[in-house]
Design a protein around this nucleic acid. Structure first.
Lengths: 221, 221
DNA sequence: CGATCAGTTGAGAATGGTCAAATTCGGTGG
DNA sequence: CCACCGAATTTGACCATTCTCAACTGATCG
C-alpha cells in the first residue's frame, strides 16, 4: 500500500516530558512512533491524572485529536521520541484515493479501542496486583511484536508514578504491589527492567488473554 | 448521504435479556438501535462482569465485532429492542462507493472510543459517588440528544446490578451511593426513573464536562 | 556535593466489599 | 381481587483493600 508511504515523510523528534498532543487544542497532528515511549492521558479538574494507554514504537497515536475539532486527550513523551507526523489531510485525501486505507485506519482505531476496553475491565474488576500483572504482561506482549522484548522480560522506562496513574492506584500502593509480586516469584520490576520470573503462573494469575491484542490485521474485503 | 439508507433495510427485534452479540463468535452483525436499551460488556474467567457502555436509541453498536474476525465483547438487550442490522459488506462496499462514509464511520468509532476513555477516567480517578453522578449525567445528556429526557431527568430501565457492573462497584455499595446522592439532594434514582434534583450542583460534583459527547459530527474534508 | 526525583516503609484512616437478612415491587395464576 | 413468587432493593455488622501522611533512603545530574 504505497499510500502509507506518505505517512512517513515528516520526521519529528521530541524530548522526554514534552507534550506532543495538548488536550483542548485545535489542529493537532497524529504520529507514528519510531523510537521511544509515550502515554496518552486526561486530567481531572482536581489535577488527578488518568493514563489511558502507553504508546511504544510502531504505535499510531493521536487519531482522535485530528478527527475531533479539539483534542479530547493529551499525549506526553516518556523518553526522547522519534516519530513521523501524520496530518489530517494525509488521512482524508488517502480515503478518496484508496478505500482500503479507510479499512486499515478504521481497523487501527478499533484495535486501539479494544485496548482501552481491556484497561477498563482491568480497573473495574481486577485487584491491584492483578491489574499490575496484566499491564506488565500487555506491555511485554506488545513489545515482543516489535522486537522489544521476549518472555524473559523487557526494558521499561516507566516510573512507579506512571504505573499508578495508569492503574488507578496511589504510587505508594504501586510500590507495595510490586514488592508483593516480586516476593511471590511472579515478576520483578527494578532499574528500568521488567523480568518475568514465572511467565506462565503470571499469565494465569492475571487472567491474561492476548486475544484483544492479536487480531490478525484488517480484513481486506 | 444515501449510502446510509442501506443501513436501515434489515429490521430486527430482540427480547429483553437476549445476547445480540456474543464474545468469541465469528460473523457477528452490527446494529443501529431504534428502540430500547442494551449494554456491551466483557466477562472475566472468574465470572465477574464489566459493562463497558450502555447503548440507547440512535447508537451504532458492534462495529468491532464485524471488523475483527471474532467478536471481542458481548452485547445484551436490557429491554426489548428494535434495531437495524448492518452487515460487514454494507460497510466495506460503501467505502469504495463513498469515501465520506469512511470518514463518518471512523468518526463514529472515535466518538465511541472517547466515551470508553471517559469511563476509564471515571473508574480510575473518581470516588464511587462521583462515578455514579457522572454516569447518570452522561446518560441524561445522551438521551436528551435523541429526545429521551431533559434536565429534570429521564426514564431508566437499568437495575442497580447494571450500575454496579458499569462502575466497578458492588450492588450493595451502589445502593448506599444512591441513597447518599438522594439525601444530599443531588439526584434520585427510583422506580425506573432518574430525577436530577439539582442539576447544576450535580454537574459540579461529578466534574461533568460534555466535551467528549458533543463533538460536532464528522469533519467532511 | 547539594538538589531533586524516584523509590521504600510504617501507622492509622477511609473507602468500598462481603455476608446475611429483611423488605418491597411487579407480575401471575387461581 | 388476592396470594404468592422471584427479582430487585435496602439495611446492618464486620472485614479487606487501598489511601494518606510522613519520614527516610537511594540514585542521578548538573
Amino acid at each position: 500500500m504505497e499510500t502509507l508511504a506518505r505517512f512517513h515523510r515528516r520526521r519529528r523528534t521530541f524530548l522526554s516530558g514534552h507534550e506532543m498532543i495538548n488536550h483542548g487544542e485545535r489542529n493537532q497532528s497524529a504520529f507514528i512512533l519510531a523510537k521511544g515511549w509515550a502515554f496518552s492521558f486526561k486530567v481531572l479538574p482536581t489535577g488527578e491524572r488518568q493514563i489511558v494507554d502507553f504508546q511504544i514504537p510502531g504505535d499510531f497515536l493521536g487519531l482522535r485529536s485530528i478527527l475531533f475539532r479539539t483534542a479530547d486527550h493529551s499525549v506526553e513523551a516518556v523518553t526522547d521520541i522519534e516519530a513521523s507526523e501524520v496530518l489530517a489531510s494525509d488521512i482524508f485525501e488517502g480515503f478518496a484515493r484508496a478505500p482500503r486505507l479507510a479499512t486499515a485506519v478504521l481497523w487501527a482505531a478499533s484495535r486501539d479501542e479494544a485496548m482501552v476496553v481491556e484497561h477498563l475491565v482491568n480497573l473495574g474488576r481486577r485487584s491491584a496486583e492483578e491489574r499490575m500483572a496484566h499491564l506488565l504482561l500487555e506491555l511485554g506482549a506488545r513489545l515482543k511484536l516489535v522486537g522489544g522484548g521476549d518472555r524473559t522480560g523487557f526494558d521499561c522506562p516507566l516510573t512507579q508514578y506512571h504505573l499508578a496513574d495508569a492503574l488507578g492506584l496511589s504510587a505508594v500502593h504501586v510500590n507495595r504491589v510490586l514488592r508483593q509480586l516480586r516476593e511471590d516469584g511472579l515478576v520483578t520490576f527494578r532499574q528500568r527492567r521488567v523480568v518475568f520470573d514465572d511467565f506462565e503462573r503470571l499469565k494465569v494469575f492475571a487472567a491474561f488473554d492476548t486475544e484483544y491484542l492479536d487480531q490478525e490485521g484488517p480484513l481486506l474485503h
